[in-house]
Nucleic acid binder design. Structure first.
Lengths: 196, 196
DNA sequence: CGATTTTTTGAATCATATCAACGTACGTGG
DNA sequence: CCACGTACGTTGATATGATTCAAAAAATCG
């Protein structure tokens, strides 16, 4: 129960639930422990869950034809992660989602989510708000990718998510920002030498 | 009334409404005519509406520091357009949204949308589904931008949206796909000469 | 038809990727 | 708690996809 407090707080920020509603809502989630490097979603399998990170970190990535990994999503505590294109439409996934650290997540399966949404208007509202904000965030990311250079994207990221920038290996950040790890390394070191 | 039939059909594809519900829903929309090159959203002003295109075409774009336009969204009949980051949070816009042709739209203002969502669970469901699919679409676009070359993105676009590829000037497509109009021109002509 | 908008072409340049090699750090089993 | 192996970061040389600039050609529109 206490483990779910984070999730309750998270939900209460978007819709205001009574104690009973909050309990009803979180009772649909399943607590799961995931070891570092373990996958929770893989291509060709349908993403069964929407995953809320209680503790730990994840990355979602695709593998292009030529074999390079491209990180599409990152998630740490209090973030959600899944292959939404798979989950929403219940189609085979194209992404891998892998734990970057030993982690604990709360999983909501598709059927339970449908049940929740039909039970209570507020639950539907929660998912609507979540989707809208995710969409707006994605759009900001598209704008950033189209209008900024690799260096600008990196600085923006450092400024907006300093905790994440330090917590993950550099190749993860580089890939997430759409550049190679070598190029990010060069950017950082040129910058450092300029600064001194 | 008959002008709104398109919108009713659009909504019925996502949630099933009675005749009365459908009427109630669309009664909140305002029909507006927009001339080619006219703006319906501009930076620094809050986006007042969510816009459904009955007839015509629009583009949403940002202008980067160096002055180049980057097209973020396109919309034709039966699509929605706005600066969602502005609309959802009711903050100043960063995008321009401009008509590419003489157009007719149905506009839903923010307050009316809130009212609709609180009135009927189904309306909320409609907006939730819309947001989820938009989000999934944006994510596919991010993946495409990160993993494909300009040429591949262009072919993908031609295949997926042939009507749009032909309807708009090439510089619009180029910008939407994140490349210059000159480069797209080169891509097309190299391809044509290879084919013959 | 003239004026504007859109597309094409070529040359020079730039941002970023690729390849390859080496250095460093880390964590895991003995 | 050391040592080894794997994972991660750096550096330099080279390659390339894509941009920029400039100008001309083609298409469209009032």
């Amino acid at each position: 129960m206490t483990a779910h407090k984070n999730l309750i707080d998270h939900i209460q920020k978007k819709v205001s639930l009574s104690e009973e509603e909050a309990q009803e809502f979180i009772s649909c989630f399943k607590l799961t422990k995931v070891k570092k490097r373990q996958f929770i979603i893989q291509p060709d399998f349908v993403a069964k869950h929407r995953n809320y990170v209680l503790q730990g970190a994840f990355m979602g990535y695709v593998v292009a034809d030529a074999g390079q990994e491209h990180i599409i999503q990152l998630a740490i505590e209090d973030w959600w992660i899944s292959d939404y294109n798979s989950y929403i439409f219940q189609q085979p996934a194209t992404m891998f989602v892998m734990a970057l650290e030993d982690s604990v997540i709360l999983q909501l399966d598709f059927a339970s989510e449908q049940k929740l949404k039909s039970m209570n208007h507020k639950y539907e509202t929660f998912f609507r708000i979540t989707a809208e904000r995710s969409f707006a965030g994605m759009q900001r990311r598209i704008i950033s990718n189209l209008t900024k250079t690799a260096e600008e994207r990196f600085h923006e990221f450092e400024d907006n998510y300093p905790q994440i920038a330090n917590r993950f290996p550099q190749y993860v950040i580089a890939s997430f920002l759409g550049m190679t790890t070598q190029y990010l390394s060069k950017l950082r070191n040129i910058r450092v030498s300029k600064k001194s």
